[in-house]
């Protein structure tokens, strides 16, 4: 099995669905095996309605899903800190890509990876 990647989607879908630019308030997370492109699961983002701490809540969900990397349009400051400290890679995808396109670009090294900071 390859690297487990979470891709943000606005609503439940597949690799042809557009990514959600937001991380903390993304609709759902599509969990995919980066090597085989197999969809492992779809996880609802319980933090989408959180008044505060949506970013850390979503990061907790990522930790629970044991993913190695996340693809989203952008990451908020708390999500960035939480994912950094959890050692989960963050990849920025430009808006308008489907989950599959974003995944392919990540594998091909064509997405920007956010630097993980030691806290």
């Amino acid at each position: 099995m390859g690297k487990l990647v979470a891709i943000t989607l606005e609503h439940a879908g597949d690799l042809d669905t557009l990514i959600d630019p937001r991380f903390g308030r993304a609709g759902v997370f599509l969990i995919v095996d980066a090597e085989t492109r197999e969809i492992i699961s779809t996880i609802d983002n319980e933090s989408v309605e959180a008044a505060h701490g949506a970013g850390t809540g979503a990061a907790a969900t990522m930790s629970g899903a044991n993913v190695d990397a996340v693809i989203a349009g952008r990451f908020g400051p708390k999500a960035y800190e939480a994912l950094s400290r959890l050692g989960i890679q963050m990849w920025n995808a430009p808006q308008g890509l489907t989950a599959g396109q974003a995944l392919d670009k990540m594998v091909a090294g064509q997405l920007t990876q956010m630097q993980i900071v030691k806290y």
């Binding site: 701490g53 949506a54 850390t56 930790s63 629970g64 708390k78 400290r85 959890l86």
Partner: peptide, 26 residues
């Protein structure tokens, strides 16, 4: 165990690899 993270209503604590991450401001 992740129990701290589970019970927190404010997403202020994360359980991670033998340690916790506390977000003071949350």
């Amino acid at each position: 165990h992740g129990k701290c993270q589970e019970i927190c209503a404010f997403n202020a604590i994360l359980s991670a690899k033998g340690s916790v991450i506390v977000f003071d401001e949350l």
